[in-house]
């Protein structure tokens, strides 16, 4: 079996890009996956119709943290329309390895935070927005017993 925990992922987990906080973000947003305790906080700076800068902070499994790093590395600097159009398949492609349904949730946490943050920024006086789905897809019911 092809390990999910290949060098690319582990590199982003150990040396996350865009990690930290920003002094004057346009918007901040964070979400928690209460079942596993994964948490992602994002500070976003929106300027001239672009996602000019972003930082994430948080804790959790390697997949949730590496996905946040990979995601921000990919989207920072891009136009808002392009960032908004970013979807789960784009993120999975970025990760480059197949994820089990249970672990997709971990990866998608950061995308959910990014989208909710953009949505909030747009609501607070940004340009007219096309509706954005803000929640992470919650498909893998996680049950313990």
């Amino acid at each position: 079996m092809d390990s999910f925990y290949r060098e690319n992922i582990m590199d982003h987990y150990r040396n996350p890009r865009h990690r930290g906080r920003l002094d004057a973000p346009t918007v901040s947003h964070e979400e928690l996956n209460p079942l596993c305790g994964d948490m992602i906080h994002m500070d976003l700076v929106i300027a001239d119709g672009r996602l000019a800068d972003a930082r994430f902070d948080g804790h959790g499994c390697a997949i949730s943290q590496a996905a946040a790093s990979l995601l921000l590395e990919d989207v920072v600097g891009k136009g808002l329309a392009e960032v908004r159009a970013y979807d789960r398949d784009d993120l999975f492609e970025l990760l480059g390895v197949p994820l089990s349904p249970a672990r997709m949730k971990c990866a998608l946490l950061s995308l959910g935070v990014l989208r909710a943050g953009l949505h909030a920024a747009t609501d607070n006086g940004g340009s007219a927005a096309t509706p954005v789905v803000a929640a992470t897809a919650d498909r893998a019911g996680s049950r313990s017993g």
Binding site: F4, Y5, D38, C61, I63, S100, R103, S144
Partner: peptide, 18 residues
């Protein structure tokens, strides 16, 4: 190491834990 990562790595070796 987050327990979910542990379980995923163990799963790659055919080991089922919760």
């Amino acid at each position: 190491i987050h327990p979910h990562d542990l379980a995923s790595i163990l799963d790659e070796d055919g080991v089922c834990v919760r």
